[in-house]
């Protein structure tokens, strides 16, 4: 029963990891920008939701505001930070340092404005009840899975049916080709940032309800997203989502066999192993040598 409980708990966490990781992978795949400030979108979305929720506003308003702020932040990063750097042909790590700086600014502004320390949106959704003997599930479990499933389905349809979605996928495969066909890769980059950042918002809202937030939470989110993108195979959204899910499950299920202090390391052992033995990831093309 412990195993089942850990598995289900891991799925709930994993669904949220999958959403943020997928957003990160979408941005990285389409624009080749290592969006290290993805965690900052998450922090901003979570805190805005908390603010509205704790002031008695309805949940839908909080969710919309969270999506809006995450999207706005992502687009602003593309427009004002990454694009100027790329215009100068700045390298991979130039982008990384710039984004790191922005994350520091966001984290500390949030701390000054919303107070430092642990905050949580109090909701009955996160309270678990015993559904089977020894197995506790909270309503938020179903919400998380449903939200993730619906969003992935919608994203899949958009990327395969809508012209802009198709172009976005094409951009991730060959950006020169896009230009040759007269499509604006700048507009598509903005779209990738908007979509990718928006995907972080629902995960942030659900995290605010379940495990709660502190102003430094973005860091962890970022690590997981990055690991999942690599494990899943760069350029594969399906891979990133599945890897995010597995990282969540692994982190939880490992407690069936080991003591909790090893849980976090376990995810990264998986990551390290993947890079050594299957560098192209779950669904990636063989880009390594």
């Amino acid at each position: 029963m412990l195993f089942l409980q850990l598995l289900l708990g891991g799925l709930q966490t994993g669904a949220l990891y999958a959403l943020t990781a997928c957003g990160f992978a979408l941005i990285f795949g389409a624009t080749k920008v290592f969006h290290f400030a993805h965690g900052a979108s998450f922090t901003l979305a979570g805190y805005l939701f908390l603010l509205l929720w704790n002031n008695g506003h309805p949940a839908w308003l909080g969710v919309l505001a969270a999506i809006a702020v995450a999207t706005g932040f992502g687009v602003a990063m593309e427009r004002f930070v990454y694009r100027p750097i790329q215009r100068h042909e700045g390298g991979f790590f130039t982008v990384f340092v710039a984004a790191f700086g922005v994350s520091l600014v966001v984290q500390n502004l949030v701390g000054m404005w919303a107070g430092r320390g642990f905050v949580v949106a109090d909701s009955s959704l996160s309270r678990a009840t015993e559904v089977l003997p020894e197995v506790f599930l909270a309503p938020v479990f179903w919400v998380s899975l449903a939200v993730a499933a619906v969003l992935f389905l919608a994203l899949g349809i958009f990327l395969t049916r809508h012209p802009a979605g198709v172009a976005l996928r094409a951009l991730s495969q060959n950006s020169d080709l896009i230009r040759a066909y007269g499509l604006s890769s700048h507009r598509l980059s903005l779209l990738a940032f908007a979509l990718g950042s928006a995907l972080a918002a629902p995960a942030a809202v659900l995290t605010a309800i379940t495990t709660g937030m502190n102003e430094a939470v973005g860091h962890h989110v970022m690590l997981i997203s990055m690991a999942a993108t690599i494990v899943g195979g760069v350029g594969s959204l399906k891979g990133a989502a599945l890897a995010g899910l597995s990282l969540g499950v692994a982190e939880s299920v490992v407690l069936n066999f080991a003591d909790p202090q090893w849980a976090e390391a376990a995810s990264f052992v998986v990551l390290f192993g993947f890079i050594l033995f299957r560098p192209s990831g779950l669904f990636g093309h063989a880009v390594a040598r």
Partner: peptide, 15 residues
């Protein structure tokens, strides 16, 4: 010795 670029970043992150 096996991988390049972003992959190596992630490997070192794991380490």
């Amino acid at each position: 010795l096996r991988v390049r670029g972003e992959y190596f970043v992630a490997a070192s992150l794991g380490l």
